[in-house]
């Protein structure tokens, strides 16, 4: 088969519509409608009602009623976000915490991915499989496992104290450091997989050629391996950073009451304060924060897909 030349977008045939109808309707209902609703609710006001916001659009009220209700929409919730220093702090804190955690994850994952990619060929799939497997196990449980390690009376402090390294327990639990460790631990597979793919996919003769041309092992790594894995680094960084910014479970379980993150604020607004417009506005703000990285990621993916 010769490869098929590029084609212009075409209409779907009737048979193809039969295939695509169910997933397309599904996507419209559960992926696209939520976005529209989040935006709409974020422009509403909280109310003591079911649902706890107003206006509530009602098709029965006719066009005039609908228009009137649209005029009731406003930016109150966003004003609330912008004026509340707690919210602003949580944005900033989300970005820095996620940023630091992403860097740590990159630095930790690179040698690990390199070691797996350089292992004997028959071991590689098994090693990467085991490295990624924790991703499929419960996130909650994996974060929970760190509580026992990090607490004042936890395993690490206990071990250090009985070895005589420290006299009083190190305050690790309920700190930003604990949140960072939790993020690195939970999202390491996301960093590892693209890095491994980028390193393992390199033609080994490139390194041999560089060495043959007089490059030391260090130079081979810096001039050949590292630049060629750029794609994997970008994908890994985005795959860790994006979900980390919106993380709720990790700051809630490992962070202190002062470890603010936007996902946690959203959660509290929704569950504790029952302020749905504020939670929706936080969601919109979160998406706005992530828009650039998400678009970068999508672009990298489509480029990858075209290759």
């Amino acid at each position: 088969m010769t490869d098929s030349p590029p084609r212009e977008p075409r209409r779907l045939t009737r048979g193809e519509w039969l295939v695509i109808a169910a997933p397309a309707a599904w996507i419209a209902l559960f992926f696209l409608a939520p976005f529209a609703l989040i935006v709409k609710i974020s422009l509403s006001r909280p109310a003591q009602a079911r649902p706890p916001y107003e206006p509530v659009f009602d098709l029965a009220s006719g066009v005039a009623g609908l228009l009137e209700k649209i005029s009731q929409l406003g930016f109150d919730a966003y004003r609330g976000l912008a004026e509340d220093t707690l919210y602003l702090d949580s944005y900033l804190s989300s970005l820095t915490t996620a940023g630091i955690a992403t860097l740590v994850a990159l630095v930790a994952a690179y040698p690990f991915a390199l070691a797996i990619a350089r292992a004997p060929q028959k071991w590689r799939p098994i090693l990467i499989g085991f490295a990624v497997a924790p991703f499929w196990t419960s996130f909650l449980i994996r974060v929970y496992a760190w509580i026992a390690l990090l607490k004042d009376e936890g395993i690490i402090n206990h071990a250090l104290m009985s070895l005589g390294v420290i006299d009083a327990p190190l305050p690790m639990f309920a700190t930003r450091g604990a949140v960072i460790v939790g993020i690195v631990y939970s999202y390491l597979p996301f960093m590892l997989l693209p890095l491994y793919a980028a390193i393992e996919g390199q033609d080994p003769s490139l390194r041999e050629a560089a060495a043959d041309l007089g490059a030391s092992p260090r130079q081979v790594f810096l001039r050949v391996t590292l630049p060629l894995s750029k794609r994997g680094i970008v994908a890994g960084v985005l795959l860790v950073f994006i979900p980390a910014v919106g993380e709720f479970v990790i700051p809630d379980l490992l962070g202190g009451s002062d470890t603010l993150m936007i996902g946690r604020s959203l959660w509290n607004d929704f569950f504790a304060n029952r302020d749905w417009p504020a939670a929706s506005a936080a969601a919109v703000a979160l998406l706005a924060l992530l828009l650039v990285p998400i678009l970068l990621y999508e672009r990298a993916q489509t480029r990858e897909g075209r290759r």
């Binding site: 996507i27 559960f30 979160l286 998406l287």
Partner: peptide
């Protein structure tokens, strides 16, 4: 939109589904 949930924060996806 198919792959959006892969990169979307879970809190946003959860909230959006609830609103639907």
């Amino acid at each position: 939109s198919l792959y959006a949930p892969l990169v979307l924060p879970e809190v946003v996806f959860g909230l959006g589904l609830l609103l639907v």
